[in-house]
Amino acid sequence: METDWIWGLIGGGLIGLGGAVFLLGNGRIMGASGILGGLLDGSGRGNTAERIAFIAGVVLIPMIAVVFTSAEAQTHLTPNLAVVVIAGLLVGLGTRIANGCTSGHGVCGISRLSWRGLIATIIYILAGAATLAVLRHVWSLI
C-alpha cells in the first residue's frame, strides 16, 4: 500500500520513543531478546519484575490496539510448522549468542553509533536476505 511508509515512520517513532523511555527512565537498553532471554536463562534475576512489566506492555498493548483498528491483524506466518520451529530456534539461539536483535543492536546500537550494533545489523540483514534468496528463489521451499 502507498501509505505503508507513513505507518512505518509513525510506528518506528513509537518504537524509538519506547526505547527512549526505557533508557532515560530506567537507565536500560531496550533489547527485546535481552529482556526476554535474561528472564529465561536466569541471568536477569536481579530485575525480573522490570522485565515482566516490559513484556506485559509489549504483549497487552497490541492486543488492545487490535480491537480498535478496522484492519484485521495478521502475521501471515508460514503454516509450515517445521519451518516455524527451525526459525524460532535459530532466532532464539542467534540473538542470545550475538547479545542482541533488531531492537538492541539495530535501534539502540546504531542510534548511539555503536560499531558492533551496525555490523550485527548488516550481518543479520545479509544472512536473512541470503536465506530467503536461496530457499525461495533457488529451491522454492518457502
Partner: peptide
C-alpha cells in the same frame, strides 16, 4: 557477534519474525 548474527538472520529470513 558474527556467528550469532548469522544464525539470527537465517531464522529471521525463514519466518519473518524477530523477538
Amino acid at each position: 557477534l558474527v556467528i550469532g548474527s548469522v544464525l539470527f538472520g537465517m531464522g529471521w529470513g525463514l519466518a519473518g519474525l524477530c523477538p
